[in-house]
Design a protein around this nucleic acid. Structure first.
Length: 327
DNA sequence: GCTAAAGCTATCCTCTAATA
DNA sequence: TATTAGAGGATAGCTTTAGC
């Protein structure tokens, strides 16, 4: 069973939202492409794992653990009575060579060493196990979920530590034979107790240079016709409710201004007053946790992102979206 | 410390237009 | 066509701020 769901990380959400409202410099554009590719790989891994089934084990997706003063990121941890399995997911594509601790693609060396990363990730958990005098196994694999990834190496140790796309289904199927009982519960509790938010990303966008307003969920256009219950895109004709637009904007605001409080005043400025403050207030009260402090009232988005709020808010939507992208 | 003004939000109410 | 959620006007109540 899934203990922690995977969502696009802070950095990916930040650049996605930023790209909507500003022209990204080439370097940041490239960074976004790398992040998107990484996320696609994790998504593919999750998809296959969901298919093969994980009801008999605990699965932690995309977590940060503080162990012994430093924080390490884990793509996926599988916990059973046997112990912890670490899966480091790399969405590489193309022909990679590995030789004596170094990775190469087309004769140029790759800056990161996936095997060393896996060793560090496992090592951290070993440290944690030592702290609690635990007695369980900790193993790990590097998973390459991209069908276009090929690996050339004579290194036996590496082969023992990798799972390629062709073997992914069989690899994940083995978890169906594991069992999560009392021991696994204790390990899961231990892991849960060490989860922290991603401490490595703390960028905050420049409010003044961002394009203000609301944009079409289908084509991204900012020219919208304001109807009573909907906003209609003037370029593609998509019609989305004000509610949908506001949730999307709250999600963007959260991604762009990590350390900045969301106030109604700031938010209506962010959406360039395209929806009345009254409507904004109604939505903020539905989708956010309100911290009431008179003139300094601020709101915290209850959901991870737009999709999370859109799907999981359990609201009765009287008015519908007519988004051409999904039709 | 007091008071008035300004800012923010909730509630009551009516009207309207999307939906079944 | 009937229903009814959502939008927004009016107003009251609360907090903060500025001026004395």
């Amino acid at each position: 069973m899934i203990v922690t769901e995977r969502f696009p990380g802070k950095e990916l959400a930040y650049y996605r939202a930023l790209k909507r409202r500003t022209a990204l410099p080439a370097k940041e554009e490239k960074n976004l492409a790398v992040l998107e590719k990484g996320y696609r790989g994790e998504y593919e891994y999750d998809r296959v794992f969901d298919e093969t089934g994980h009801s008999s084990v605990f699965v932690f997706r995309d977590i940060y653990l503080r162990i012994g003063g430093s924080v390490a990121q884990y793509d996926c941890l599988v916990v059973s009575d046997d112990g912890i399995v670490v899966n480091e997911i790399k969405n590489y594509s193309g022909l990679y060579c590995y030789d004596r601790g170094k990775w190469y693609i087309r004769d140029s060396q790759v800056s990161e060493d996936a095997l060393a990363q896996l060793r560090r990730a496992v090592g951290k958990l070993v440290k944690l196990r030592y702290q609690v005098r635990g007695q369980f196994d900790i193993t790990g694999k590097i998973v390459f979920p991209n069908i276009e990834f090929r690996l050339q190496t004579n290194d036996e140790e590496l082969w023992e530590n990798v799972v390629l796309r062709s073997g992914l289904r069989n690899y994940l199927l083995q978890f169906k034979n594991l069992y999560a009982g009392r021991v696994a519960e204790e390990i899961a509790e231990l892991i849960r107790g060490h989860i922290v938010p991603n401490p490595y990303f703390d960028k905050c966008a420049d409010f003044d240079v961002l394009r203000k307003g609301l944009y079409c969920g289908s084509c991204g256009g900012f020219e919208l016709e304001n109807r009573k219950y909907h906003l209609v895109c003037e370029s593609c004709g998509s019609k989305e409710t004000k509610e949908t637009h506001i949730i999307r904007a709250i999600s963007d605001y959260k991604a762009l201004f990590l350390n900045e409080k969301l106030t109604k005043k700031r938010f209506v400025e962010f959406i360039d007053y395209k929806v009345s403050p009254r409507t904004v207030l109604r939505m903020l009260n539905i989708y956010c946790e309100r911290t009431w402090n008179g003139a300094f009232t601020y709101y915290d988005f209850k959901y991870q992102n737009f999709e999370d709020a859109y799907v999981n808010s359990n609201r009765l939507w009287r008015y519908k979206d007519y988004n051409l992208k999904y039709e």
